[in-house]
Design a protein around this nucleic acid. Structure first.
Length: 272
DNA sequence: AATCGCGCCTGACGGC
DNA sequence: TGCCGTCAGGCGCGAT
């Protein structure tokens, strides 16, 4: 499930193949993703050049002179760079073909992903305009989190996967950062100290940087733009390890549902 | 304003 | 073998 490090990995993989390249064809096979792919996508993209590829939260922004293609991988989306005329597989929903003979192909079994076209500033799009700060940016800090947490009754786990608080942190890295910070995931956000938030912000940054360095986490189905897995999963301390011994204290890791999501934690290392 | 729960969707897996 | 229920989950949305 792609979170910020996986999306960043995809960005770095596709960027050198598509930046400054002209789009010579677009093939859409499945228009119904999370939101419909615009019917006139081909018309909008044809002859256009991708001038820059950026990431905001888990969104990829492919900028052209006339507008921006906003892509989201949802739960199971994959973007691959392939040679043209590579045989299509199940759930290959659209292709963008370039003059350099490369094709950007989007595959998404669960179809929670998105492909949108905007002609105005993409950061002002309703999906992006309310996003909180990028966690790796310097304006994301313990003090910021602590200030936003005042009067919040939601569990800290729910608080940090809220994209309006901080962008791009999902279930995997929230669980990991809370473990590393020694904070129980069910703690009400408002009762944590500034000191704890400083530690949490530090660990969020650290775990995201480490994961990017290793090309992301492959648990079920994440593959980068070359079709290769990420190598962060063996670094995971708690996510996906319920029932196994804690790597730190060896007590058995527990799981609970917080905000409809499985949350793995260590009762010894993360006390309420 | 904050929070809750639903729905979208497919594949994997366990039980019978 | 096959069928059915459950789970996984990012994230917007409507209801409270």
């Amino acid at each position: 499930m792609p979170e910020l490090p996986e999306v960043e990995t995809v960005l770095r993989g596709i960027q050198p193949h598509i930046e400054q390249q002209c789009i010579k064809n677009v093939v859409v096979r499945q228009y119904t993703l999370r939101w419909p792919i615009p019917r006139d996508l081909k018309q909008k993209l044809l002859g256009n050049v991708i001038i820059q590829v950026e990431r905001r939260a888990k969104y990829l922004l492919l900028k052209t002179h006339t507008g921006t293609l906003i892509l989201h991988l949802g739960m199971s989306g994959k973007l691959r760079i392939i040679e043209q005329h590579t045989k299509q597989q199940k759930h290959d929903h659209f292709d963008i073909e370039f003059d350099n003979q490369k094709t950007l192909r989007f595959n998404d079994p669960r179809r929670f992903g998105a492909c949108l076209w905007v002609e105005e500033n993409p950061l002002l799009h309703p999906l992006l305009k309310k996003l909180g700060p990028e966690p790796l940016h310097k304006d994301f800090s313990g003090k910021y989190l602590w200030q936003r947490a005042q009067n919040r009754k939601a569990p800290i786990k729910t608080f940090i996967i809220n994209s309006q608080i901080v962008a791009g942190v999902g279930n995997i890295y929230a669980a990991e950062a809370l473990f590393l910070a020694g904070i129980h995931p069910d703690t009400p956000a408002a009762i944590l100290s500034l000191q704890q938030y400083n530690q949490l912000a530090k660990q969020i940054k650290s775990v995201l940087r480490q994961a990017i360095k290793r090309g992301g986490t492959t648990l079920k189905d994440f593959l980068n733009s070359n079709g290769e897995p990420g190598y962060f999963e063996n670094q995971l301390k708690v996510y996906g390890r319920a029932g196994l011994p804690c790597k730190h204290c060896h007590s058995i890791l527990k799981t609970m549902r917080i905000g409809q999501r499985a949350s793995v934690f260590c009762e010894q290392c993360q006390q309420l």
